[in-house]
Design a binder for these strands. Structure first.
Lengths: 173, 173
DNA sequence: CGTGAAACATTAGCGGC
DNA sequence: GCCGCTAATGTTTCACG
C-alpha cells in the first residue's frame, strides 16, 4: 500500500511546498485557508507518511562551475559477479576488503558527479545523469572512474545543449 | 561570467542546505562555526547571486500514485516551423491564437507529467523525463499528448526498473 | 564579525463543531 | 474525526558596536 490518500487541501499544501519549501507554516496556512495548527498537523503527517521525502536547496549548476550535463547509458557485463549489480552495501564492503571491487550500484553512490542513476528497460542497463565542469572533466570521469569499473561493458553519452524544463515538482493527480 | 567564487564556508553552507533546505539559520550557523548573522548574510548573498536557485520539498512519487517513471527520447521534424522548436512563449502564444500550434518547448512546459526536458546531442533531439501512474496513463500521454504534437517525428521510451540514486545535491568542486 | 532586542513563527494542550 | 484558539518557547532579522 504505498499510495497515501490526499484530499484537496493536502494537494494544495504539496503544490505550494514543491514550489517554495521554505515558506513558513503560517504563510502556507493562509494560502490554503486554514489556521496554522491544522496546517502544521497536515504537513507533519505528510512528512511522516513519507509523501514529503526531503526539503532541499536547489543550486544552479553553471554558477558553481558545473557547465556540462551529460546523460550516460551504461551496459554491464551479462555474467558479471552479481555483487557488481545490486549487492548490498554490506556485501560490497566486505568484498571490497579483499579487492577494490564494489557493486556498480555502490560505486555509483560514491561518485559525486553522478546525481541520478536508474536501472532501465531496453538495450542499456542503466541511465546516469552526470554534472561535470567541462569536457576535460568529463573525459577524466570516463577514463579514470566509470570505464575502470569492472562491470561496465560499454557506454553511450549524450550532452545537454539546452535546458527546456527541469523541475522537481511532481504532478498531483 | 556565470561562475561565482565560493570560499570553504560557502561550500559548507551549500552542502548543508542541499541536504536539508529547512534547517534554521541558527542550526546552519552552528555547523559552520559562525554566529547567526554572518551566516544569514552569506545565505542571502548566495540566493541573490543565483547560486541557490530555489528551495523545494521533494515528494515520493510512489506515495502519490506515480508508480512509473519513463525517459523518452524525442526526434523532431527536421524542417518544422522554427516556432515548434524554440519559439519564445510570446511568439508561440501569438501563434496559438490562430491555431493550437505551440512550440515544442512551450508544449513541454505545459505538460505536468514531463518534469524534465533537455535538448541533447546525438541522434535524438530531446530527452524527457516523465512521471505517470501506470502504463495506461503512459499510453494516454503518448497517444493523446506527445504524439499529437505536430513537430514530433518519432520517440523511443525506456522505463525505470529501479532507482539506484537520485539526488538534487550537486557536487561542490 | 558578533550582540541584543523586537518582530515573527512554531508547537503543544485544550475546547468546540 | 478535524478545526481553531491561546500561550510558552524558539527563530529571524536588523541596527549598531
Amino acid at each position: 500500500m504505498p499510495t497515501i490518500a490526499l484530499d484537496a487541501t493536502d494537494r494544495k499544501i504539496l503544490a505550494i511546498l514543491q514550489e517554495d519549501g521554505r515558506l513558513s507554516n503560517q504563510e502556507v496556512a493562509e494560502r490554503v485557508n486554514l489556521s496554522p495548527s491544522p496546517c502544521l498537523r497536515r504537513i507533519k503527517q505528510l512528512e511522516q507518511a513519507g509523501v514529503i521525502r526531503q526539503y532541499v536547496a536547489l543550486l544552479e549548476p553553471d554558477k558553481i562551475g558545473l557547465g556540462l550535463l551529460a546523460y550516460i547509458n551504461v551496459r554491464l557485463e551479462k555474467h558479471s559477479d552479481p555483487l557488481y549489480l545490486s549487492g548490498t552495501k554490506a556485501a560490497a564492503a566486505q568484498h571490497q576488503t579483499m579487492s577494490p571491487r564494489v557493486s556498480f550500484s555502490t560505486a555509483v553512490e560514491r561518485w559525486p558527479e553522478v546525481v541520478a542513476c536508474y536501472a532501465m528497460t531496453g538495450e542499456m542497463d542503466f541511465l546516469l545523469r552526470v554534472h561535470v565542469e567541462d569536457m576535460a572533466h568529463f573525459s577524466r570521469f570516463m577514463m579514470e572512474t566509470l570505464l575502470r569499473h569492472p562491470a561496465v561493458l560499454d557506454v553511450k553519452s549524450s550532452f545537454a545543449l539546452q535546458r527546456v524544463k527541469d523541475t522537481t515538482a511532481l504532478p498531483l493527480l
